[in-house]
Design a protein around this nucleic acid. Sequence first.
DNA 1: TTCCTTTCTTAATCTACATTAATGCACAGG
DNA 2: CCTGTGCATTAATGTAGATTAAGAAAGGAA
Lengths: 155, 155
Amino acid sequence: MKKIALKKGQILQRKGDFNSKVYQVEGGLLRSYAISDKGKEHIYMFAPEGWIMADNAPPDEPCDLFIDAIEDSIVWQKEKDLQGEHDVPKLIKRLSVLQKRVIMLMGASALERYEHFLATYPEIVQRVPQKMIASYLGVTPEALSAVRRKRSQKE
Amino acid sequence: MKKIALKKGQILQRKGDFNSKVYQVEGGLLRSYAISDKGKEHIYMFAPEGWIMADNAPPDEPCDLFIDAIEDSIVWQKEKDLQGEHDVPKLIKRLSVLQKRVIMLMGASALERYEHFLATYPEIVQRVPQKMIASYLGVTPEALSAVRRKRSQKE
DNA sequence: TTCCTTTCTTAATCTACATTAATGCACAGG
DNA sequence: CCTGTGCATTAATGTAGATTAAGAAAGGAA
């Protein structure tokens, strides 16, 4: 277990790395993202203080995600120990959350995705640039801007 | 561990059930699906013989998915034992697959999704009605029909 | 401060997919 | 056998969101 201090923008893990670690965020804000074959960046998740960030790849396979710091951050790096005190209920909870996200992605409009983001990450809306929120939602910054305009008109 | 014989169309699990089970498919074909608040059906996965089918909900939470039989089927029903011989590497593998699917869903066109489906389930294309494939891909049957037409023209 | 780069927003146009509707087919029940 | 019901396909029209382009606002480095 190792403590790591990160500068904003610093990369913690690259796609293709083996033996990816688990990061417990003590302060700051991380993101993980994939880069498609067309070169587009898709943010997979955010992790503010108190959250866990990890690629879900098995340790014998290369990981799929990049992880970097959106703000200066402090994280604890842990090994993914296969055996041992692996918290099975926590793994199942992760599966459940992912499953819900898949279901959501299949049916939801840009507006609904934005509402879902707000519900999932209420504390970080102000700390993340719009274009990253758009990337997380899977829409363009222009589309997100339109969604926000419509929302603010209604209230 | 209990053996269950299912008729085509028979429902094995409903959304909202607690303590959902794990099903090992010995023969036939199952599907799991969600129904959105607008009443639309989204197929989450298929499970032909040899596959495992389960909702990923923790046992203390209601599950999200319906499971039913696309063909007459035989399945083994197992409890989700929290403790005990839970296969952690297998759980991690499931996470990894789900993560890849999320990334795919965020960036892929209807054509790409169809290619992905063919790669994932090569053995069942003939056994599943088009409209269910469309539902799995998150597009309408009409859109799938157009994709298939384009593909066949090219080759 | 000034300059430069990046981000956000607005608007015009384009495109993939949804919706609606009509038609042809297959198969199940009488 | 006829007749209904559901499925697949095609074509038309509609629409959410992508793309392109331009200008305004915000942040960093000298």
